[in-house]
Design a protein around this nucleic acid. Sequence first.
DNA 1: GCCTGGGTGA
DNA 2: ATCCTATTAG
DNA 3: CTAATAGGATTCACCCAGGC
Length: 524
Amino acid sequence: MAESIKKRIEQLRAEIRRHDYLYYVLNQPEISDRQYDKLFAELGKLEQHNPQFITADSPTQRVAGQPVKGFKSIRHAVAMLSIDNTYNDDELRAFDERVAKALGGADYDYVVELKIDGLAISLRYEKGRLVTAATRGDGETGDDVTANVRTIKAVPLVLLSDGSVPDVLEVRGEVYMPTGAFVELNKLRIKAGEPSFANPRNAAAGSLKLLDAKITAERKLSFFAYAVGELSEPLAEEHWLMLQKLKQLGLPVNPNIKRAKDINEAISICRYWSGKRQTLDYQIDGMVIKVNRFDQRAILGATGRAPRWCISYKFPAERAETIVESIDVQVGKSGILTPVANLTAVQLAGTTVRRASLHNFDELKRLDVRQGDTVVIEKAGEIIPQVVEVKKNLRPAGVKPFKIPAKCPSCGGDVKKDEDGVYIRCVNPHCKAQLIERLKYFAGRDQMDIENLGPDLIEQLVESGLVKNPADFYKLTKEDLVELERMADKSADNVIKAIQKSKNRPLWRLLAGLGIRHIGGQSA
DNA sequence: GCCTGGGTGA
DNA sequence: ATCCTATTAG
DNA sequence: CTAATAGGATTCACCCAGGC
């Protein structure tokens, strides 16, 4: 009896996995949702009455019972790099020329993918079972969000196999919230009196940071695979065939990915989707063009940040008009003064924009931005707001050009323009704003990465005179901290612990953290 | 229960 | 995330 | 001289923990 129940359970699981595959990977469901639910219910009932047969990879076990306490760190076996961007045909052709040159006349082709606007994730399968899922993090180490990712139905808990699966398979892809799901979710939230989400990407990112996977499960996230990380054995000799393999293993791959025999074909595919992107049930912010063959990718290699065999093509950014209410001047860690425009709040690409960097005073002068001006802004790569144009015909009468500060806005000290350069710097070595920025940088994620030691606390520590250089962090006591605002027992404890923990960071982090001119994370 | 700072995503 | 600039490599 | 790379600067949304 028990044997036959066990057999039926396994049969149902295999059946459900097959239908998941048909639905999420092939987009060709063979049964209705109702029939699927019936299979699911039967399995659930059998497992409920025979709990000894429940396994973690059963389709019924996607949602964990208990919320996690926090996210552990996971080191990526293979780093997750960024991608260099282009914004027009010429830049794409320049990329193609670099590729052609590096490959020395050999034939090559491309794979053109849609750049899904979600968040990158790395799934690790061992012996065909999903063991961990991690965010990108700093590219080397990310957050363990396995419990949340397990709730995403498009992510298989078990790889499909026609005999063998790789021992280790790390799959990289994008978690996203389909536009339809996003709209429905916001309707529900408004009905429940909860604030709505600003855009699908932030909704998806937030959903993966929930400690309670039960809530994540209600967020209707989805997933597309587009690359691999660590691999125990090669899946194919080229990217295109590898994507087909991933599909066979049950991983959803975007159905609109195409091969292109040359850059012209790739460009025309980019153009096509630039016009058709509204028809998709997910947001894309561009296209990604990859050299197909892996041996050729190896020849091309990578820089510190991004591979040289891959480029993204970003669609033209949405624009909006708004008014410059004022212009701030900020002081950076090396004394550089940066003008930043405060804008009348305006909706742009799914966010409310209030500020935009003006980069430097040459740039400010070139644009001739003045307080009170109406400006056209856009978000470069859908992220960083920038002023692209000043509507001079709308300028109010009597508005004066912006005056380059003669003194540091923080310390009042002298400023000096770089020789043969454009930057204007505060030259006071004791400038408080510079000190604060240097300390923030020291504690920051890409340097010493000290938890709970954020911008506000650092500012308080400097203002109170407790910290005058990075070494002073390590002399702080709990008694020092509890004197500060919003610092009670628990917070003070956490900060002290985090500072102590940072003592065993690798040397390069310390070197980078000291912020010596021209020494960054790479050279350190 | 509300608010804010910290951490992290793009 | 991206932008702009300075420096380095070729 | 030009191209590639590193460094320094910037924005907004979301979740959680802790303070009050």
